[in-house]
Design a protein around this nucleic acid. Structure first.
Lengths: 212, 212, 212, 212
DNA sequence: ACGTGCGGGACACCCCGTTAGT
DNA sequence: ACTAACGGGGTGTCCCGCACGT
C-alpha cells in the first residue's frame, strides 16, 4: 500500500474530462484543454485511455454511474413510501443544482445521452444501461409500494417509472433551455404532484429539504 | 415575383443543414458536408448566412419553429377536449417517428436545446421562445378546458403544461438512448394515462391513430 | 455637362479604397469592406475596375499622385529659398499629420511602396514614377538655388534630393513604429537641420507653420 | 544536452518563416507555404508557436534582432571614429545586399515595421524596441565621439542618430521601389556625406569596401 | 508511468471574382 | 450602370493521435 497510491493521474484526468464534457459536450470537448487544466501531459492521457471515445466511456462508467447510484438510487433502498422519497429526491436535487449553479448545464447523463446516443453504440449502450437501472430501481420500489399498500393498487409500476425518468430528463432540459429557476421549480412541483397522485393517502404536503 | 423563379439555394441549404445538425449535432455538424450534399458551393452558404452559428439560428427560426407549430400547436386550436387531443398528438407523432425511423435521432428541438443552450445565448433564447410558446399553447388549451368543464377543476393548467412539455422531452430522449420501440410506446402511454387523469369523464379509451 | 456628373460611384469607391488600403495595407485590405463602407455593390466595383490590383493602381494614380503633387511639389514652384521651403513643408506636414492622427498610419505612398514594390511590377513602376518626380522636383529646386546663390555651391542637388526623399520615408516610418510624437518631431528637426546646412546664409531660424 | 541532437524543427520553421514574411509580407505570407518549404507538418508549427502572430513575434525576436545586433550594432563597439565606422557599415551592407540580391526586398525590419506597426501592438512594440536600441547605439557612439573630439562639438548625438536610422529606412525603401542600384548607391553616398560632415577632421575619403 | 515533439487531416471562415439579370 | 446570387479555393486554426524518450 503506497502512501499516496500514485498521485492517481488517471483519476485526475477522469474528473477534468467529466467537467469538460459536461460544459462543452463530448464532441465540443477538447483533450488539450483537459490535459492542460488537469496539469498532465498528453502522453499520460493516452497511456490511460485508448482515445477520446474510451475516455468518454470511462467518464460514464466511473463518474456518472456512481453519481447516479448515490444520488438517485441508493436513497430508495427499502423505502416505505417510495413516491414520497422520490418526490423528496427531486426537490432536494433541484435545490442543490440551483445552489451550485450546475442546473444551467443540465443533467450530465442526459447531455451525453442526447448528444452521443445516435452517434456511437458504445455510448448508447452504456447510457441505456444506466437509465435502465434507474427505471428498474423505481419500478421495484413502486411495486413494493403497491404490495405494501403505500401506492394505489391500479398503478402500473413500470409505466410510472418510465414516466418519472422521462420527466427527470424533461425537468433538467427545461431548466437548461429556459435558465429560469421558477420554471424548473414548477416542473419539479408538477412531478411531485404526479407522485402524490400515486400514493394511497394524501398526507402532509411537505418533505424534508424544502426551501423557502 | 423574384428575378429567377428562384432555385432557392438558401432554402436548400437550410433543409440540408437541418438534417446535418439533426443527425450529427450542431458542433459535430460539418458545413462541408452540408454544401456537398446540398450541391451548392461554400460561397453560396456564406452569402446567405454569416456563419455556422447564424445558419443554426435560421434552422431554428425557419425549419424547426414551423414544424413545431404545424405538428403540435395548430392542431390544438379550438379543441373541445384538449387532453384527448394532446394525447392523440402524442400517439400519432410517436407512430410517425417510429415509422419514419427518425425516432432514433430524438426531437430536433430538444437535441439543439440540450447541446447548445448553455453554450450560446442566441440558441438558448430562440429555443426557449419555442418551448415557451409550446407551454403557453398547452396552458391556454387546458385553461379553456377547465372553463368548459372538460378538464377537472383542480388542475393547474400552467403546471400541467410544463410537465407535459418536459415529458415530451423525456419521451423522445428515452427513445433515443434506449432505441427501444416498446419503451418509447410505454413512455408515451404513461403520458396519455396522465392526460386521461386530467379529464372530467373517463370516456372511450382510444383516439384516432392508435397502433397495437 | 450634367448637374452631378453621376453620383460618381467610381470616385466614391476610389476614396474608400484609399482609406482601406491605407489602414490595412493592400494585401490585408478587403474589397468586401470597401464596397460595404462605400455603400455600393460588388458589381459596381468590378464594373469600374478590372480587379483588386487595378483598383490599387487607380488609387495611386488618381488619389495618392495628386496628393503628393499638391502637398509637396506645387509649393516648391519658383521658390527663392528652396531649402527653407522644404523645411517648412516638413514642419507643416508633420504638424498636420499629428493633428489629424494619420501620422500613426505613416505615409500612404511609402506604405504601398514597402508592401507591394517587390511583389508587383505595376505597383512598383507607378510608385517609382511618383518618387522619381519627387526627387526631380527637389533636384531642380536645389539646382536653381545653387545658381541663384541660395544654396551652397558645393552641394550636389541630385544627391541631396535623394537623401531628402529617403529621409521623408524614414521620418514617417519612425513615427509609425514608435508612435512617439516627440521622436517624429526630432526626426523632422534633424532633417531641417540638414537643410539648414545646405543654405548659404544661416538666417532667422523659424519658418511659417511652426507649432509651440 | 537535449535528448536527441535536436532536429530543431523550431529553428527551421523560424528561418523559413523569416524568408516567407520577408518576401511576401506578414499578411501575405502563408503558413502553408512555410511548412511546405520547411518540410515540416502543420502540427509541428502549432506545437512550437501559438499562431501566425506569435510566429511573427518570434521571427523578430530570434532572427531579425540578432541580425541587427551583429550587422549594425556590434561593429560600433568601442569605435574611435564612429561616423566613419557607420559610413563603412552603410557602404558594406549596401554592397552585400546588392550582391546577394536581397536589396530588392528592402530591409526585413522596415518591411514589418511599415506593414504591421499600426495593425498590431505586439509587432509595434517589438519593432520599436529594436529601432530604439539602434538609435541608442548610434547616440552613445556619437556622444563618445563628441567627448573624444572625433565628432564636432555642436552635433546633437540623439538627433543625428534619429536621422541616421530614418535615413537607413529611406535608403532601403528607395532601393525597393526604384529597383535601381545606382540610386541606392547615391542615397547611401548622401548618408555618408552627411556623416562626413559630422566628423572633426575631413580625412581621406575612402573607407574599406568601396565599390565604384 | 509519464512527457515532448511532431504528423496529418479537417474545420469554419472568408475572400476575390463572375455571371445572369434588371 | 448596377445588383444579387453564387463559385471555388485558400486561410489560419486546432485537434486527435502516435513514437519516441526517460
Amino acid at each position: 500500500m503506497p502512501p499516496t497510491p500514485p498521485p492517481n493521474t488517471r483519476r485526475k484526468i477522469l474528473l477534468f474530462a467529466f467537467e469538460e464534457f459536461y460544459h462543452h459536450g463530448f464532441q465540443g470537448g477538447s483533450l488539450n484543454r483537459i490535459v492542460e487544466t488537469a496539469g498532465v501531459a498528453k502522453g499520460a492521457l493516452f497511456h490511460h485511455f485508448a482515445g477520446k471515445r474510451e475516455l468518454g466511456y470511462a467518464v460514464i462508467d466511473e463518474i456518472i454511474g456512481p453519481i447516479l447510484e448515490s444520488r438517485w438510487l441508493a436513497p430508495l433502498a427499502g423505502a416505505a413510501d417510495p413516491a414520497a422519497v422520490i418526490a423528496g429526491l427531486f426537490r432536494r436535487t433541484v435545490n442543490q443544482d440551483v445552489r451550485s449553479g450546475s442546473w444551467i448545464h443540465g443533467c450530465p447523463l442526459n447531455n451525453l445521452a442526447q448528444e452521443m446516443s445516435p452517434l456511437d453504440e458504445g455510448f448508447r449502450s452504456r447510457i441505456d444501461a444506466l437509465y435502465s437501472a434507474w427505471r428498474k430501481c423505481y419500478t421495484d420500489a413502486l411495486a413494493a409500494g403497491v404490495r405494501s399498500g403505500a401506492i394505489r393498487p391500479h398503478v402500473d409500476p413500470s409505466q410510472a417509472a418510465t414516466l418519472l425518468v422521462a420527466a427527470q430528463m424533461g425537468v433538467w432540459g427545461t431548466a437548461k433551455s429556459s435558465q429560469n429557476r421558477d420554471l424548473m421549480r414548477q416542473a419539479a412541483a408538477a412531478v411531485c404532484a404526479y407522485l402524490e397522485g400515486l400514493r394511497t393517502q394524501p398526507t402532509l404536503r411537505t418533505q424534508k429539504g424544502e426551501t423557502p
